[in-house]
Design a protein around this nucleic acid. Sequence first.
DNA 1: CGCCTATTTGAAAACCGTCAAAGTATGTGG
DNA 2: CCACATACTTTGACGGTTTTCAAATAGGCG
Lengths: 227, 227
Amino acid sequence: MISETQKVEILSRSFIFSALTGEELTGLARMAIERRFTAEQFIFIEEDAPDWFYIIADGKVKAVKHTSLGKEIIIAFFGNGEMFGEVAVFENKPYPASAQAVSETRLLGIRREDFLSFLVKQPLVALGIINVLAGRLREAQSRLRDLAGERVEQRLARMLLMLSAKLGAELPFTRQELSDMAGTTTETTIRILSQWKSRKIIGSVRGRITILDETKLRLLAEGRPRV
Amino acid sequence: MISETQKVEILSRSFIFSALTGEELTGLARMAIERRFTAEQFIFIEEDAPDWFYIIADGKVKAVKHTSLGKEIIIAFFGNGEMFGEVAVFENKPYPASAQAVSETRLLGIRREDFLSFLVKQPLVALGIINVLAGRLREAQSRLRDLAGERVEQRLARMLLMLSAKLGAELPFTRQELSDMAGTTTETTIRILSQWKSRKIIGSVRGRITILDETKLRLLAEGRPRV
DNA sequence: CGCCTATTTGAAAACCGTCAAAGTATGTGG
DNA sequence: CCACATACTTTGACGGTTTTCAAATAGGCG
């Protein structure tokens, strides 16, 4: 169990609540409950009822969908201070994807109705949410373009660049995860990354990839032949 | 030139403004100007400055992006009463895609700053926008999964089902447009649609596709072999 | 040390894109 | 009303990219 003060502290680190006063944050904190998950544990499953809106206090969560043959596709990763589950909550429809903890994770959960009634009184928070949703749509559209029209090598290069823009040059992902994000297979990802590794474009150790030569990666992302 | 009353009438047909009073609509109408476009004409181009937010009064608009080799990818279609350009406007970053009129189109355009200052005073409109953005994210995520993991035949089936859920069984698209949405080529689309046509799953005449057997299409979308 | 997961490599085949050419509607102007 | 231009549709053959299947290696943790 954590204190109200700690909840306020966690909420205040989230972009969408940055405009709130201490008092408003306290009001929000009173609606929030803490939930803990271990690595691999599911927070909700696609098609579940949209009862909870979440903010990550500490940890990492992935949103996944599955193809008709059961292949996992990673839709997004979320880290500290980020919200998720919002699409379902705002539409009042089942969650469009499953949410799974990637590592030990602490969340603050707020009930759908509580959060919506809070939201109508907080136009600035609504604007912040609009901003975040717009950003996610922009990213989704970019990925749609890549998946619909680019080769695997370019998709992987773009994926690494997108991730490193958000997380830095050290990327804590396995080849499997990268494949599930780029819409390809582990084997293909390995073949391409091995090549890049021998050309000193990236470095890697088990479950961790480092971008060494961003310039060359950018050329690969643009599909210039024989970089 | 159209009258204020007509603008109010057009705005009132839009979902996001359904909560507004006549007076509020009039205020919004005063900020809006009418713009007309002929088929094929570009309303804005990817990377343009995000100066305008648009509502479609009458017509049809597509959002397109291009791959590194120049192939066109259709991100979305918008029809009467729908907004577009919002991602750029809310993030205050360049438009993430180009917007092109598909047919003769009339728009209402509102300047970014005008619209944002209107928005902070209208929490219900903000909630409506959140709702629309959430819906678009849901759709984008579903397409991401399809593009990343499903075969072309299944992608086409799903695309047709998604479009028909929105527009009805009569779909005004060419095979080229369908290909650009499903991330494939005209030839492949034709080969698959021809097969479906001979199996009476769809019908088609130049630039128009009719869904005849939705049940079978659903099975194809799920990838059941030999339906 | 031994297990489990991540990574690697190879070979064969499937899927789909590419290229080339031709057929068929629709509309236009003479 | 016909002839032509244009865009959409169709078909076939070929080949490349990527998946699939199988098996082996390597690194980290209890």
